[in-house]
Amino acid sequence: MRLVIARCAVDYSGRLNAHLPPATRVLMHKGDGSLLVHSDGGSYKPLNWMSPPCSLTTEAPGEDEASAGVVEVWRVTHKKTGDALRVQIYEVLHDSAHDLGIDPGLRKDGVEADLQRLLAEQVDLISEGATLVRREFPTAIGPVDLMVRDAGGAAIAVEVKRRGDIDGVEQLTRYLELLGRDPHLAPVQGVFAAQEIKPQARVLAEDRGIRCLVLDYEGMKGTESGAPRLF
């Protein structure tokens, strides 16, 4: 990756036209060929950019540009669309290249699979004295995240989400309708478990006799005190 801090102006031409007047900015030329133009603000989003596949070439400034103080011109052209990003560089304040190597990718903590695994290991949070029957319990329309038996042997189907919304409640409702037809399971209770449950989803769940369980992910990992709340 090449990082350049420069006073520059940028023009984008193609399916749309855009202009950034002269100012000090960060130019990030990545190994995949892309170029991103950043200011000291706006969080992660660049002011303008060119995504791959594209190529960067340098040009000498024209007479008018040189007289205006431009010392170098970059042209980044998209190989498929022909869109172009033209950068007029007036002054370079920093120029460095860095080999970042192969990135292992983002590993998310607290995704649904983690919540499901932790809840399967702590089924007492669903019902005291409960036992796990199976994770990914199969139905004709897809697997239920957890199938549990309470202390009295009654079946409980649990749907686990990071953020619980109406769609998740509808999904669990469909599972319950199918599972309720199995004489070995009926009657089946439903529990909708999530780190956060939207108010509309809670109203719908309670109207359908489904219990809502708010999960304290940090507490379940043992990194903080706190217990899920069953409503």
Rank of each mutant, 00 (worst) to 15 (best):
G209C: 07
H19W: 11
V214K: 09
Q200H: 13
L230N: 09
E121D: 12
Y90W: 05
E196L: 15
S34A: 14
L36P: 00
A205S: 07
H38K: 14
W49G: 05
E112I: 04
D99V: 13
L3K: 07
D83R: 08
G219M: 03
S67L: 13
A84H: 07
A23G: 06
E218H: 11
R202S: 03
V76R: 00
V158F: 04
E112T: 04
T173S: 14
L176R: 10
D40K: 12
R229H: 10
L204C: 02
R208V: 07
V214G: 01
S96Y: 06
L27Y: 06
T58N: 09
Y44G: 15
P22N: 09
R117H: 14
F231Y: 09
A60P: 01
V92S: 01
E65N: 03
S96F: 09
L213D: 05
L204F: 08
I156H: 01
H94N: 03
E206K: 10
T24K: 12
G110V: 09
T58H: 11
F137A: 01
R229N: 09
D167F: 09
L118K: 04
V203E: 15
T24H: 05
E128C: 05
D99K: 11
R163E: 12
D32L: 08
L172Q: 01
Y175T: 02
L176W: 06
M50I: 14
G31R: 08
Q200W: 11
D182S: 08
E112M: 06
T173M: 04
P187C: 10
L230T: 05
M28W: 13
G226M: 12
A113H: 06
S55V: 15
V158M: 03
A157S: 02
G153I: 00
A68W: 06
V76W: 01
L47V: 15
S39R: 11
R75L: 02
V92W: 07
T58I: 13
H19S: 13
D40G: 08
G152T: 11
L215K: 03
Q116Y: 01
H94C: 02
M220G: 05
G180S: 10
G164I: 00
S51W: 12
R75P: 02
I5G: 01
D114R: 06
F192T: 09
G180A: 08
L215I: 11
L146I: 05
L119T: 03
H184T: 11
P61S: 07
L172S: 07
P22S: 13
